[in-house]
């Protein structure tokens, strides 16, 4: 049968044969568990016994749970502060780094280094930086010049920004590199033409650089938004004894899912939270793609 096919048809058969492997992989590793998670979200399961069907109970419980709404808000605070702040800082660094020739590679390496560092190790080091006297670096410095201690991680107001700061810093290196690649891709001739016309620095930035960086910005915004919506390791490691504390003020959705699943063993409830996170990620990504793409 294979022999009777035309060359074009044979090519299609082979293409599908090769494509079947990733498709199979995705079906088994991604789609099947995803489907299963959605199924579990309508069930009650403690990981040991039988799964029992409970309909929308898990979702009703979720929407009535004040901790869930607190955590939902925290997740968006991470997103709404983290994404713009890291975008602006990384652009400013990339813009200036792009014009530096002296030790350019070395500086770029320094910015990229935190991105390669283990998030766990970094979170613990920052956790110790933030401690009150006598161990905390920052508070010891404050105390030595006579300023009262600052409750970095021991305050419901300041704990979230304190956790977010190292997370932003850790992601900067990657964004700087992407921005620099974007800047390099802008043809020099535009800038030369602008210089001949004598336009201001601001106009060059606003009319040439930023519009031509749009694809880069879209990529970074989507990528870092998903990262901040899924933030976990920094929070968990900086608050291990009291995960997401104090008083849930730093708890993101992923940490709540983890606790529900693996310390309360309430898999159905955890799956319902996962489905909500999935929908949030989907909606946020679609909105961003739409807003940033057309204009």
């Amino acid at each position: 049968m294979y022999r009777n096919l035309t060359i074009r048809q044979k090519q299609i058969v082979w293409a599908w044969a090769f494509l079947a492997i990733p498709i199979l992989f995705y079906t088994v590793i991604r789609f099947y568990p995803t489907g299963n998670a959605i199924l579990i979200s309508f069930q009650d399961w403690n990981l040991l016994g039988d799964r029992t069907w409970t309909g929308f109970d898990n979702y009703q419980k979720l929407f009535a749970d004040p901790v869930f709404w607190k955590v939902f808000k925290n997740t968006f605070v991470y997103l709404l502060i983290g994404t713009p702040v890291s975008l602006i800082i990384s652009f400013v660094i990339a813009y200036h780094l792009d014009q530096v020739r002296f030790m350019h590679g070395f500086l770029r390496m320094l910015y990229f280094l935190p991105f390669m560092t283990s998030a766990v190790a970094m979170a613990w080091v920052w956790r110790w930086f933030y401690q009150p006297v006598p161990v905390g670096l920052f508070n010891n410095a404050l105390a030595s010049i006579g300023i009262p201690q600052f409750p970095f991680l021991q305050s419901t107001t300041w704990a979230l920004p304190s956790v977010l700061a190292p997370a932003v810093w850790a992601g900067l290196g990657f964004q700087v590199i992407i921005f620099m690649a974007g800047l390099r891709a802008i043809p020099r001739s535009y800038y030369e033409a602008a210089r001949i016309d004598g336009v201001s620095w601001w106009t060059v930035l606003w009319e040439i650089t930023l519009p031509l960086l749009k694809p880069t910005i879209v990529f970074i915004v989507v990528f870092s938004s998903i990262g901040f919506l899924r933030i976990f390791d920094h929070v968990f490691n900086m608050t291990t004894n009291n995960p997401g504390g104090p008083l849930n003020s730093t708890k993101p959705l992923v940490l709540m899912i983890y606790e529900t699943a693996f310390s309360a063993f309430d898999m159905g409830y955890a799956a319902a939270q996962t489905v909500v996170l999935f929908l949030v990620l989907l909606v946020v990504s679609l909105i961003q793609l739409r807003i940033l793409r057309d204009s």
């Binding site: 305050s155 419901t156 009291n242 504390g245 104090p246 008083l247 849930n248 310390s263 309360a264 063993f265």
Partner: peptide
Amino acid sequence: ANESGQRQLMVEMVERMTLQ
């Protein structure tokens, strides 16, 4: 019933007093 969950409530009981 859920040791870490029940411990967490004790942690928060103290935090409401010290932080709030």
